[in-house]
Simulated scan of single mutants.
Amino acid sequence: MSAAPVGPPAPSPYAAPDVKGLRLRAPTGLAVALTVLFTLVIGFGVYAVYADWNLRALMERLLADPAAVSDDELYRSERLTGLVGTIQGNALIVTGIVFVVWFHRVRTNAEVFAPGAEKLGRGWAIGAWFVPLANLWLPYRIAVTTWGSSTPFAAGGGYRRFPLTLVNLWWGAFVLARLLGWYGGMSYGRAESAGAVRDAATTMLVGDGLELVAAVLAVFFVRKLTAMQHARAGQGPAVAAV
C-alpha cells in the first residue's frame, strides 16, 4: 500500500506581510524562558520573605531582652539578609532583561495587528522602563494598548473581550513592591537602632511579599498575552488601522 502524498507544511501564523517594515515574530520562546525565570524569582522571593521575617523577629527579641540575642545570631541574620538581597537582585536583573525583550516583541506585534493604536514609538517599550517616575506609568500604558491590540477575533467576526483585570493587578502589585522594596532597603541601610532595623525589616517583608504576588501575576500576564497574540496571528494580518 503506497503512502499518501505529504502536502506542504502549514504556514507559520507569524509569516505575516510586512506592515511599515514590521513582521510578526513569535513571543512563545521568550514566554517559556520567562516562566522559568519567574519561577526562580518566586523561589528566591520566598527565601527573602524568610530572611525578612527572621530579621524582624530577631530585632523584636533584641528589644525585649538585649542579653537574649548573641553576636553570632546578629551576624548570621545580617549575612543572610545581604546574601538574599544579592541573589534576589541578580535574578531580577536577568528576568527583567528577558522581560523587556519580550515586552518589546509583543509591542511590535501589536503594531502589526493594529497599526496606529499606540502613539508612543516601539522604542518606548524598552525606554519607558528606565525613565524615572515615568516608569511608574508608561509601561502600564503600553501594556494596556498592546493587550487591546492583540485581542483575537471572535467566531462571529467581532473582537473577543479580555478584561484588563490581570494587567491592573500585575502592575499594581509590581509598582507597590518596587516602592516598598526601595524604601525598605533605604531604611535598612540608614538604621542605627534595633527599632529602626525592625521597622525596615517589616517594610521589606511586605515589599518582598508583594514581589512574590507580582511575580506570580507576571507569569499569568506573559502567558495570557502570548496566547492572545498566537491566536490573533493565526487569524491573518491586520484588516484596518485604528
Rank of each mutant, 00 (worst) to 15 (best):
N90E: 08
R198P: 05
A134R: 03
L22C: 06
R161L: 12
E73C: 13
A68E: 14
L210T: 08
Y188S: 12
V98Q: 06
A215I: 11
A134D: 04
L169I: 14
A110L: 05
G184C: 10
T28W: 03
V6T: 11
L120H: 03
Y47G: 03
A201F: 05
L83H: 01
G96Y: 11
R232D: 04
K119C: 08
G185Q: 07
P27T: 13
A57F: 01
G172I: 08
A4T: 13
A173I: 10
M59A: 02
V239K: 06
G207S: 05
A33Y: 10
V213T: 04
R160F: 10
M228H: 06
R76I: 07
T39E: 05
T165A: 06
A238E: 12
T203Y: 01
T226H: 02
A114F: 03
L210C: 03
A117G: 00
D208T: 14
R223W: 14
A3I: 05
T95M: 14
G148Y: 03
R25W: 06
V167M: 08
E78W: 13
V175K: 00
D199M: 09
A57H: 03
V101G: 01
G127Q: 02
L83A: 10
L179Q: 08
D208Y: 10
A227N: 05
Y159Q: 13
M228G: 09
L133P: 02
Y75L: 15
G45P: 10
L120R: 12
L37N: 11
Q88K: 07
T95I: 11
G157Q: 05
G236D: 14
G207M: 06
G184I: 12
G234T: 11
G158K: 02
A233Y: 10
L63T: 12
L225D: 05
V197Y: 09
G21D: 05
A194T: 05
P66E: 07
P139H: 00
F103E: 06
A48R: 02
V175E: 00
Y75Q: 15
L210G: 07
V6C: 02
F103A: 06
P11R: 05
Y75S: 15
A67P: 08
M204W: 01
A215H: 06
G195C: 11
W124R: 06
L133V: 15
E211L: 14
L120D: 04
D18L: 10
V101D: 02
A64H: 08
E118F: 11
T165F: 08
L225P: 03
F103D: 05
A110S: 14
D71I: 01
L80Q: 09
A117P: 00
S187R: 15
L62F: 07
S70K: 09
A117Y: 01
L34G: 05
L63A: 15
